[in-house]
Design a protein around this nucleic acid. Structure first.
Lengths: 209, 209
DNA sequence: GTCTATATACCGATAGAC
DNA sequence: GTCTATCGGTATATAGAC
């Protein structure tokens, strides 16, 4: 069942006395792990699976990380960290509520695309461990910040008031978060085009005018 | 670690010679299983967990179903079956493409709400087994049918043409499918109100007019 | 129909050689 | 840094008593 995307299995030492190929350092292990977690789910992915994908052994992985859950923690940390950064950017703090909302939504799409596998994993977490619950809590706070922006935009008269505000926010998030389920970076749709399409559909709807 | 939502553990026989309480028949087992799968994920839910929730033993469950995967199969079958039915209803076959699209989207929301736990499970399936892949394939066909409706509605001039059609469909689905992540039946938002809100946001957008 | 006990397999993680 | 071998735990599923 071994995968085939691994370099030579026999890591022989070079003349300098140091083991060649450092392909299995932490960033590479993390990348492979996140990909596997997204493909089969965290629980359905075993350390043995990861070792196969890396062309190494379970023990070799444990040299680089403390354990399976540590891989999850590092991945979730990166995803939620990047999303939180958007709220601290200047564009998220000046202008009308509508302008700030558009900026933050654009930023969310940007992070989603640039860190697609990491954010994908974040959006699938169910809260089965302290690490997952911690990530969910930070995500909840991020969502709440945007929810407040929606409220402000409604209050200033930019957004429609005939639909429940909470529902509005949820649907907005549903639309944006769903991007991780289908968007392929490097395909025919650029990140900028995607961002524009999302904002167009969200604010102006599908109906032709 | 036993749960407490179980009736009396001691199932004594009645005078008619038949074991009392048939609380643990298949529908009940399936309901509990789907709830657990949604809360912790299919892989993270063990047959022991289910037995605890039912207040019975693992073996008792195996009397009613062939195995854990059988529970998944039954649940996915119901969810995708109900969604497919919508496409066969009269309203999905007559009227303009825009009218049919609205009907099918309304129907999807209806099924989503009425069979919430089952559809939730369906939307989280990753394709880890033949059963999951089969469900995903049927879901893909369902999505494709709606995608064709979107194309038709664009062609007849009902929907805007300045956003990629495939992207439009994906965002539409993302919005609707996200309902399973937050909607609570029996809460302040009725199913009919939710349907109306979804269609309003999808077709008319968030901007006040 | 439900129970206890168990077979069999795989999991995450570690020990110790090299 | 990576290996093989293995520990302890838990998983699905079954056997056989009642």
């Amino acid at each position: 069942m071994s995968e085939s995307n691994a370099p030579s299995r026999t890591a022989h030492k070079g003349g300098n006395g140091r083991a060649q190929r450092d392909a299995y350092d932490l960033p590479r292990v993390l990348e492979i792990a996140v990909t596997a977690f997204n493909e089969h789910g965290y629980d359905a992915t075993s350390m043995g699976n990861l070792a196969d994908r890396l062309g190494t052994s379970k023990s070799a992985i444990y040299y680089h990380v403390a354990g399976k859950e540590d891989l999850l923690r590092l991945a979730l940390e990166r995803a939620i960290g990047e999303l939180e950064k958007v709220l601290d950017e200047p564009g998220a703090k000046s202008g009308s509520a509508a302008e700030r909302l558009r900026f933050v939504l654009s930023g969310a799409v940007r992070v989603l695309v640039d860190d697609l596998p990491f954010v994908t994993l974040l959006l699938r977490v169910r809260g089965n461990s302290d690490i997952e619950r911690s990530a969910l809590e930070r995500r909840r706070r991020f969502d709440h910040a945007i929810s407040r922006l929606v409220d402000e935009a409604r209050d200033e008269g930019s957004l429609r008031a005939d639909v429940d505000a909470a529902v509005t926010t949820r649907l907005l998030f549903g639309m944006i978060n769903s991007i991780v389920e289908w968007y392929k970076p490097g395909g025919s749709i650029t990140r900028e085009q995607l961002t524009e399409d999302v904002l167009t559909v969200a604010f102006d709807g599908l109906t032709k005018r």
